[in-house]
Structures are given as C-alpha cells and as structure tokens.
Design a binder for these strands. Sequence first.
DNA 1: GTGCCTGTCGAGAATGAGTCTCAATACGTT
DNA 2: AACGTATTGAGACTCATTCTCGACAGGCAC
Lengths: 146, 146
Amino acid sequence: MTSSDPIVEALGAAGYRLTGPRRAVAGLIAEYDGHFTAAELEIAARERRLGVSRATLFRALELLTELHVVERLDLPSGEHAYVPCVREHHHHLVCSRCGRVADVEDGALADAVAEIARRSGYRIESHRLELFGLCRHCQAKAGPSA
Amino acid sequence: MTSSDPIVEALGAAGYRLTGPRRAVAGLIAEYDGHFTAAELEIAARERRLGVSRATLFRALELLTELHVVERLDLPSGEHAYVPCVREHHHHLVCSRCGRVADVEDGALADAVAEIARRSGYRIESHRLELFGLCRHCQAKAGPSA
DNA sequence: GTGCCTGTCGAGAATGAGTCTCAATACGTT
DNA sequence: AACGTATTGAGACTCATTCTCGACAGGCAC
C-alpha cells in the first residue's frame, strides 16, 4: 500500500519509521474535521481495537505536532485539543458548538502584528490567534438571535 | 488598613470578603511584572509562610480571573501562566526570555477579525491573540543578531 | 530474502496540576 | 460581642500526561 495518507507521508519524509501504531493514529486523525482531544483518540482507538497504548498515542501526537501536521489548541474551557492542519503559518477559527475548525490565513493580521511590534519595541518572534464563534451551520440551527 | 492594593479593591468592589489569604495572594501577584504560574505562587507563599493552602491559591486565582484582574495565558511550552492585567479587552505580548508582559490594545486587530468573520461566515464570539518575542531589554542583552 | 541494529512499542507505575470534601474558622453585619 | 455565612485548610482524589524498561518490529545492508 502506497501511503496515500498525507500524515503518514509527512512522517516518512521526516525520517520517522512508518509503524503500525503511527499509521493507526494517522488514520484516526484523518477522520476529524474539527478538533479532537487525546482522550477522544484513545477511546476511538480502543473501540476499533487498534491496540495503540496511551503512551504511544501521546508520543504520536507529540511527533505530529512537531511536524506541524496537527496543532495543539487551548480551548476557552482550558481543555487541550488538537486540530489537523496545513503546514503554513495560519490560525484557527473554532466553532464553539460543533467543534468544526476552519483555517484562517494570516492576512491582515501580519500588518497588525508589525504595528504592535513597532509600537511596543518588542521583537516579535511568534504569535497565535485563536478565534471562537459559531460556524454557518450552527448559526442556522441556533437561530438568528441566539 | 485601607486597601491600597487594586487587586484587593477589585475583590471588595465585587462583594467578596477581604480575607487574609486573599490579601496575601494579591500581595504576591502585585510583585510580578510578567507572568507567573500557580506553582510559582505556591512556592512563594510557602517560603514566606503565608499559610495559603493550594486549594485556596487556586480558588483565589479563579476568582481573580473571573474579575479580569489577572488573565490566564497559555505559553508556547504548554504551561499555564497568569498575568496581572487591566480589565478592558486586550492582548498580551510576552517576552520569551524574561517573562515581562506588555498589554496590547485590540486596535487594528478588530478590523482583521471582522474581515475574517466576513470571509469565513462564522459569527465570531471571542478571540485571543498571544504574542511572543523579546522585549527591548532582552534584545539589548542578546545582541542585535541573536 | 535474512539478519541485525536501533527506533519504537506496551504496560503500568509515576508524576503533577488542579479539584473536591467537609469540618473548622474568620469576615463583616447587626 | 454575637451570629450567619463565606471562606479556608488538609489531604484525598482525579485525570491528563510522562516515564521506565524489557520486548518487538521496521527497514537498511548484504
């Protein structure tokens, strides 16, 4: 089987071994549109009897985070979640109802950040913008005023 | 003793009792320019024999967060930290070397967020921008190229 | 294809942040 | 000063995450 899965490909390209557990985790992640937590993945893995231990699951997530294939997200609730994502610098727009995640380009934000750097005198090395709201779908369900 | 401490004042204004442990925590927090973690506070409290239990410390932080006197921050390392801050909506610019925190007004960012909302179709409810970099001081120490 | 080296894995113990319980205590009002 | 209630302390508890270490398996060399 050729690795049609981009996550598996990223692992291979970075020189990591393409092991069964890693493929399994990659497969699970590929199914998510929105964010997922480590606990959710663990349950999903257990249900399908993928035989991935918790330690391995966390190791895989750590690895994938390092490769920028998934990104770690801090929800307003304080929970940690992960989102599968593209590798370029970008931000996340998270639906607070259904969890769906949209990627947002840096766009106008880069200018705002440059402006902040100028005014503050800081040399800005990185920034992270997290946006929370309702996606179109959930707005429709919730009604226009809710 | 009149409560000269703005943190203590905020507690009082919100109708909370001004207890010893809360004053102690407020006093500790007032000493920080930059961010601090719950663990750091705990150690500081123990060193000074303030007699503030862990539970109380966390309760105080929760309370102060609710009052927007401190804000919870997620460092790139994944650690949770707190920063003392003003009450209006704003963002944080954290020096990744010394931990000093500067408040940043929303400014141009609000426009960028509105633009994102328009393009994505999401109804954005909240956003959080975290900026990391070197403050002037640390830039000078680190030299122009480091 | 076979073997070997080393990266990776599993199981479960360990860690550590944060929460909870409940009896004891201390605000601050009267 | 007394009282009612908010708050506290101590430590057990939870739950996510990490670590340890012997066993295993991917993939390069031959």
